[in-house]
Design a protein around this nucleic acid. Structure first.
Lengths: 250, 250
DNA sequence: CGGGATCCCAAGCGATACTG
DNA sequence: CAGTATCGCTTGGGATCCCG
């Protein structure tokens, strides 16, 4: 049939409703990619290489029925988030932050897409830290994909670089070119270390080459600026022998 | 087999990892209930009436492997969240808030559990608003379950009422009895209206009986205080004819 | 009796092939 | 390019059964 009557959980609850709408396999990854901007069917298929085409088709239909996604009027095969879909941003970014704590090294065959990277940057972005820093452009090359993150005055704007399909109405308002530009080539694992603040805190620039990162452009100190602008707090590793009394939401 | 090798998405990404760990059907609802406190197998089975017992068993095993859940040392059949599991709170609460916007009326046969209710209150809680209000206890009776929410100085503590299993180490520190106590009996739909701030803003107390709510105890004004303390912003309904240019995370 | 494990069937998922 | 159709395989659902 394709479109399927969502199997409920029999609960009158917020998360139950949320999971009914965006909890099917692949659905939240589609939402994540659309959070980076409107995309066409083939764009999604490319940034989600392992999704079967029928599943992508089914999910897009279901997400439309759920009021999360709608078609872009003019563009053939174009999809974008509705208001309700955009409202998922806090939840998706929270999951993104949580997922980073478990992100280990990339497994065999795992890819990094530009959209995923863009959302990671949004999840890691610290507006208040950025507000007190001079405008900066960060150009990142990670695992074959490239993007540019403009940071100015507490705001963040990420756009993919390259033969970008679907010209976005990116409101990168013609601000004067930023004084500082940092351009990095990083391997996925090194990118995680960059954001996660893990081990190499101070010796990072020195050991840059060792951990899979090379600075193409940008003076010293810009890497530190990046790390103050983008950071995800790691979660304490699971303690098998934790003391008692642990419960309840913070 | 039971425990299953998690099917990956082939993505090196935070949300992909998150969904691999807690994205299976029912998993996030289990986490939600455990966010309300440690629970036993039978407690979970009761608050999730429609979960097949084998699925509950499988999920608990998987969540343990994922480092999200661990067994409670002494209690037989007791489960609780690990540090990593607790770190899911922001994501679960964000999903809870989003889900409320789509929560409509309860469908036939849908239940409301005390744990779900407790998480809803946490999701709706406004610490800054609460900080400027006098300490208050809210006793809610919704669809057969009851709970007490203590609000004092920007803090919230929710405990179920009744023959509560698994005596929680609830750090409801022996604060002096709150000056004000509001006790309500609300139907599920009315509870949603209470939180969602929807239509009946001012005429709420007058129309209390009409919308399925009765005040058992508490002076006038306490309902308004409740609504200032607990509120979830609704999401604009999906506009099928929205203008162009909508994209990117906020 | 609470805490699970086993079974079977239906539904969802994945891979491939195919069409407007 | 943007999907639809088909076909095995895997998972979830529901009932039953087992074990301490």
């Amino acid at each position: 049939m394709g479109t399927r009557v969502a199997r409920g959980f029999g609960q009158y609850s917020g998360v139950a409703r949320a999971v009914e709408r965006v909890g099917e396999r692949w659905a939240l990854l589609i939402v994540r990619d659309l959070l980076a901007g409107a995309r066409r069917y083939s764009d999604l298929k490319q940034s989600l290489p392992r999704i079967p085409t029928n599943i992508l088709s089914d999910r897009l239909k279901e997400l439309q029925e759920a009021g999360v996604v709608r078609r872009v009027p003019i563009v053939r095969g174009g999809y974008e988030l509705t208001e309700a879909g955009l409202a998922l941003a806090p939840a998706v970014l929270a999951l993104e932050r949580w997922g980073w704590s478990a992100l280990g090294e990339p497994a065999e065959g795992e890819v990094v897409s530009a959209d995923a990277l863009a959302v990671s940057l949004h999840a890691a972005f610290r507006p208040d830290a950025a507000a007190s820093l001079p405008p900066t452009e960060y150009v990142l090359h990670v695992a074959g994909t490239s993007l540019s993150a403009m940071v100015a005055g507490g705001g963040l704007d990420v756009v993919p670089i390259g033969p970008g399909a679907l010209p976005q109405p990116h409101r990168r308002t013609a601000t004067a070119a930023p004084a500082d530009v940092l351009e990095l080539v990083v391997e996925p694992g090194a990118f995680r270390d960059l954001l996660t603040d893990a081990s190499a805190a101070t010796s990072l620039r020195a050991a840059a080459a060792d951990i899979g990162m090379t600075v193409l452009a940008g003076g010293p100190g810009l890497v530190d600026r990046f790390r103050r602008t983008f950071r995800i707090e790691p979660v304490a590793p699971d303690d098998a022998a934790g003391a008692a009394g642990e419960a309840s939401v913070a």
